[in-house]
Amino acid sequence: MVAYTSTPSDVEMGLEERTVVLVEKKSSTGWIWKVSVALLLVALCFGGVLLFAWYWNGQPEMTRSGQTEALIEKNTAEKTDPHYTLRRISSKAKAAIHLEGSYDDDESLKDELEWKNGQGQAFAQGGFRLVNNQIVIPQTGLYFVYSQASFRVSCSDGDEEGTGKHLTPLSHRIWRYSDSIGSKASLMSAVRSACQSTAQEDSYGDGQGWYNTIYLGAVFQLNRGDKLWTETNQLSQLETDEGKTFFGVFAL
């Protein structure tokens, strides 16, 4: 905006000699609007950059969070497996063997639990062998020896009134034969009574009976060529479904 003003001159000089001076007055509001618009544009640009950065970085974080939760669920499910700990330890061992138990009244081996390799969770590595239903130790050293026998026992004593007491001893033992000893020796054993009393009816009316488990496990110094085997009573009461009865050794 431009305004024009005239300055007073000497009256005596006359109209012909009067000088007119033009003075420009600039508006003070124009530059303020320009600065405000510029600041607003800068703020919008900066906000857009922040929003884009948040979206870009947030997506991978959400993906990583979902993957972590999935891994946790997977690990939890694995650890509920009864063989998880033994498989994890034996997989890192130099030598290991894990056998599944089997028993059939119709087979020729009616007086002992038969151990199977190569079925279910069973495996052998590092020189271990299964010979004549016995585990043969490959090298001299420290070994962890373990076994589990599971039973399903009927506690009925045949008394219609269900009175009296009936004890069914369950036993499971691991034997060792070493040339240095020259005879067999018991490594571990346990005995349990599955039926405490028949004063009340069998807890399973459908005849399934009482369920009981004997677990053995310890560390031993064994020699090359030593043989290990098991001895179990109440073979007809054994539960040999996958994972219930097993026998194994691994090197430490």
Rank of each mutant, 00 (worst) to 15 (best):
Q208H: 07
T7D: 15
V153T: 15
G158A: 15
Q234C: 08
S193I: 00
T29N: 15
Q121Y: 06
A70R: 08
L41F: 09
I214H: 13
A199Y: 05
G47D: 09
C155M: 01
A251Y: 13
Q234A: 15
V42W: 01
F151E: 03
S189V: 00
R88K: 08
L235G: 05
L40C: 04
W115V: 06
T240Q: 14
S9V: 06
L40G: 09
D104M: 01
T63N: 10
S154F: 05
I32R: 07
P8Q: 09
V131A: 14
S36C: 08
L216G: 11
R18T: 04
E69P: 00
S178C: 04
K244F: 13
Y204H: 14
E161S: 15
Y177L: 08
Q237F: 03
I174E: 04
S193E: 08
V42K: 00
G209N: 02
Y177T: 04
S91P: 01
N132M: 04
S28K: 04
E160Q: 05
V42A: 12
N117Y: 04
Y204V: 00
V21C: 11
D179S: 14
Q59Y: 07
T140N: 13
I32D: 10
E239D: 15
Q139L: 14
N57Y: 13
P138M: 12
Q196Y: 01
V37G: 13
L238Y: 07
V191P: 03
N233C: 09
I135G: 15
T5F: 14
N133Q: 06
K227P: 02
Y103V: 01
F247Y: 11
G30V: 07
Y204S: 15
S27T: 02
K34Q: 11
T5V: 11
L130P: 10
V20L: 04
L222Y: 13
I32A: 12
D111W: 05
V145F: 13
Q67W: 06
E161G: 07
L142Y: 04
G126D: 12
L142K: 12
I72P: 03
A218E: 14
F123C: 06
M1Y: 11
H98T: 01
G205S: 08
S9C: 08
Y211H: 11
L40V: 01
T198D: 12
S27C: 07
L216F: 09
V249N: 15
F128T: 08
Q59E: 15
D81P: 02
A194Y: 00
K79P: 02
L235E: 03
G217W: 12
W175G: 10
S28A: 06
E107G: 11
W54V: 01
Y55S: 06
S189I: 00
L228K: 02
A190S: 11
V21L: 14
S189Y: 01
A38S: 11
L71I: 08
W31P: 05
F220G: 13
T198E: 04
R173V: 08
L40A: 09
W33Y: 05
N233G: 07
L99I: 00
Q200V: 02
I181T: 15
G225L: 07
T245K: 04
S150V: 02
N233P: 03
